[in-house]
Write a protein that binds this DNA or RNA. Structure first.
Lengths: 217, 217
DNA sequence: ACAAATATTTAGCCAAAGCTAAAGAATTAA
DNA sequence: TTAATTCTTTAGCTTTGGCTAAATATTTGT
């Protein structure tokens, strides 16, 4: 598996988790920041390798092999994130990009030894679960802040890790995993949400609310 | 710089250190396990990028930029080797191949944080010096066992790290960095060397002797 | 049911890295 | 000083991954 193939596989994996349908050529191209024609080419390659199955206009689905492979890449990504944060003192918003490179290192031994070195962490710095060496992991039950109910108290269990700016924003406002958040008011006009945490009140935009994941206490 | 370019640069760096002349197209091709025509192509690319200068039939020489770049890659390689050995308990012979991959990760911050995490090691597990973040390092004074004098005692300060079989051989015979070795007899017939260390005597072949580096005590 | 909108694929390019086979240069040896 | 040998480059082809523009296929809305 080449670097590009691994990245496509990971993209398909993430998109599959976000909706119940197959992943369309267009959606895949957009996720990969490339053109639909390029996605078509890669879909052929991955289908030839039995990593995915594909029905035109119905989208791509990971095969068992494909999913297992994608999970391995995700496992590596998240382990490296933990390493960067805990051992090398990277900040929350810095880990993602470097982990994007490290996740492609091919050495099962390295991955497993790293896992052991980090004491078999269950989640990464963004709250996402880390698969074990057999690919098993527990799904974290979470809702986005936009889905939360007014007047209810939640705990922050996850964030979308793709934007460093977003993570810096959270950092600047002292929101992190484990922060207890009460929803004071949901503004229907612009879908902003007024929250309280650490005895502070803050109004966050819909954009922020969508990328902040909570679980009930 | 692409992966292939980095690997060529590193190869040139290593070959430059082994002889005083420029590195020939053929020598470079051999080191890279590829064909001379491919080396020619890459030489053009690297020369275009001002990483090397090249005079046909006189060989390639690293430019200042090129050398600095090569040293950075070497620094990363050796730091990762230390990490794998010390933190993840890889064995001597296993570190090289994984470090070959890790050395291409592009993040100055990662490299420097790793250096700090490892406590600024001066040499890697094979005795080779690790450049600091400015590219500075001290050259280790060493001779190969074939160059040693009969009746003299030395200390093992380095090994050629390229063959895992060689390192396994040393491991199996309990030779490691820091081992004190006395040369009992040099056999002119086959250039084998009889040595004594840890109160044991052992005859090593010329091949082994060439790849074992010593310094005077 | 059929046109419009949307989704997908094809065809033909490009660049990076590699290869083989053949040609061209320089060095060395007789 | 030629001729042989060795070194190096060129020409042309391959694969991977990406691109644009154009063609084709499917869905959807009326």
């Amino acid at each position: 598996m080449t670097l590009a193939e691994e990245n496509y596989l990971k993209a398909i994996y993430h998109l599959e988790n976000q909706s119940t349908n197959g992943v369309s050529t267009n959606a895949l191209a957009e996720e990969m920041q490339t053109k639909a024609s390029s996605a078509t080419d890669m879909i052929k390659k991955l289908a030839d390798k039995n990593m995915i199955s594909y029905i035109p206009y119905q989208g791509v689905t990971l095969s068992k092999t494909g999913r297992a492979y994608a999970v391995k890449v995700v496992r590596k990504h998240r382990l490296w994130e933990v390493f960067l944060l805990e051992k090398l003192n990277f900040s929350w918003d810095e880990v993602h990009d470097v982990a994007e490179q490290l996740e492609h290192i091919k050495s099962e031994k390295l991955t497993d030894k790293l896992d052991e070195f980090l004491n078999f962490p269950k989640t990464d710095p963004h709250g996402d679960p880390i698969p074990d060496k057999h690919g098993h992991f527990e799904k974290v039950e979470k809702i986005s802040l936009t889905e939360g109910l007014q007047g209810t108290t939640y705990v922050c269990v996850g964030v979308d890790d793709s934007s460093s700016d977003f993570l810096k924003y959270l950092d600047g406002n002292n929101i992190s995993l484990g922060t207890t958040i009460e929803i004071i008011h949901k503004e229907p006009f612009d879908n902003s949400v007024k929250i309280r945490f650490n005895d502070l009140e803050l109004v966050v935009s819909e954009n922020v609310a969508k990328n902040l994941f909570l679980s009930e206490v």
